[in-house]
Amino acid sequence: MSQINIADQVVEKINGEKIAPHTVGYFYARRSVIFAVAGIAVMTGALAMATSIHNISGADWKFFRAGGGSVWSYIGASLPFVWLFFLLLFGLISFLNFRQFKTGYKYPLLIVLAAYVGLTFLLGVGLWRLGVGHFVENKVAAGVPVYRNMACAQARMWSHPENGTLSGQVMELGDEVIVLNDWLTMDKWRVLVNSSTKFYAMNNLQLGDKIKIIGIAQDGRIFVAGEIAPFQTGCSCGCNGGMKKHGTCGGK
């Protein structure tokens, strides 16, 4: 085919089909979508980061070690896997989206992911300090049964009174006795507190607090508390009365 024919065909097609260059507005709209996706990816990542920080900050290595846990069981009990998965997912989305920017292709995956993690970490810390992590954890646990079951799976690691661990929500508060609702069995436990009981990362115990306890179980659902720490989990699903066995909200 000769040189002139291609040029003729191109001009003929442009004229025949009335093809016109995309407008400036079209490209602005396209860039706006790219920026919007970038913003959503970063904000979602920041929320995931805030919630992850909330979950990790509630873990207490000294407390866990006192209960006889290993490093791996501690990691398994503490890491917010769901939120870390979302962080990674939106990190990848942000990388693919970043490549749509004119010079985005120049940056390799690791650099973009590192920048994304750094930015979401900074924003996430800010959101966590505002209490957003705590809010999101409880709202998601209240509204998403699958997530609630996962949060409760971690909570169940702390509900083995026969092994000296107990967790639940404070239902009644006395000077030396706490009535605790175990979220695994919904049993009410009388937790005995005395001067030798150690409190980690908490000053005052209040009604409704979610706590985990290391101690000794006795007959008649009595638990002598050795050490008490806060338990930052969505397992209570935002309602009173603890959990049913299958992990949905009790309502009692």
Partner: peptide
């Protein structure tokens, strides 16, 4: 082949024309 290359080139220049305002 040469015929296919001409078709591809034609499509490419049409695409270039469409996106000319995005040419920096």
């Amino acid at each position: 082949d040469q015929d296919a290359s001409a078709d591809i080139l034609q499509d490419a220049f049409i695409k270039a024309y469409l996106n000319l305002r995005d040419f920096d």
